[in-house]
Design a protein around this nucleic acid. Sequence first.
DNA 1: AAAGATTGATCAGTCAATCTTG
DNA 2: CAAGATTGACTGATCAATCTTT
Lengths: 141, 141
Amino acid sequence: MESLAPEITAAWTGLMRAAASVQGAVEAALKAEGLPPLGWYDVLWEIEQAGEVRPFELEPRLLLPQYALSRLVERLVRAGLVARGAVEGDGRGQVLSLTGEGRAMRTRIWPVYAGALRSALGERLTLAEAADLARLLRKLR
Amino acid sequence: MESLAPEITAAWTGLMRAAASVQGAVEAALKAEGLPPLGWYDVLWEIEQAGEVRPFELEPRLLLPQYALSRLVERLVRAGLVARGAVEGDGRGQVLSLTGEGRAMRTRIWPVYAGALRSALGERLTLAEAADLARLLRKLR
DNA sequence: AAAGATTGATCAGTCAATCTTG
DNA sequence: CAAGATTGACTGATCAATCTTT
C-alpha cells in the first residue's frame, strides 16, 4: 500500500471539509432568505460585469461545461432574470444580458452572500491568514 | 453595497476553485481507470476500518444525511461490495460489512487515489506548506 | 468538418413523507 | 413519540447525440 505523507492527507481532507462547510453555510444563508443558489449569482454577476456576453465566453470563467451552462441559463431566462438575444453576423450564437429583475436580484443577493462569507471566513481568519490561505490555494489550481 | 476585504474574497474563490480542481483531478483519475467515484471509496474505507458498522454511525463521519447514505449503500450492495446484515436486539437497524469484492475494490482504488493526490497536492506543496494549509483550513469547519 | 448551443436519456441529490421497531 | 432507515416525487447533473450555422 503506497503511502502518502500525513501533511498531504490532512491538507486533502481539510480542503474537502472546509469547502463543503463554507459553501454549505453560504447556500443555507441564501435559502433561508428565499434566494436562489450560488450558481445563479455567479452567472448574474458575470453578465452584469460584461453587459453583454456570449455563453461560450462564460464557460471558462464559471468552469462549466457547455450543456450545464445551457441549462442554467435556461432556468435564469425562465425566471425572467436573463435575456437571450440574437447575434448579428453569426446565426449560431446568442448574446446574454440581464433584465431589470436580474439586476435587482443580483443586488438583493449580494448582502446575504457577503454576510455569510463574513461569518464563515472573515470571523475565523485574520486578514493575514486569509491572504496566506489564498496564496496556498492558488498553488493547487 | 457592503464590501468584503479582498483577502477574504481571494480566500473564498481560492477555496472553491482549489476544491473543484483537486477533487476533479481525483475523480478523473478514478474514472480513467474504470473505478467508481470518490464517495464509494470513503464508505468502503469506513466500513473496512470498523469491520461492522451501523449506517447511522457513518453519517457524521461522512457528513451525509440519512437518505443520502441509504441510497449510496443501496448502490454498493447492488454492486456486490457491501453486505447488509440484521442487528440482534434491535429490529430497526442493520449492520454493514464489506464483501470480499468490496475489500478488493478498496485495495484497487487506493493507489490511483493516492497517485492523484500526489500530483494534485504533493507535487505542488512542500510538506510545510501542506501542514500550514491544513491548519488554516481547520479553522473554517 | 468545426463551432456554438441544445436535447433525450439516465443517474444522482434533495425534501418531505413514510414505515417499522423501540 | 423518537430512532433507524427507506421511498416517491422532483430537481439537478451528466454523457452522448443532435441541430444549425460557419
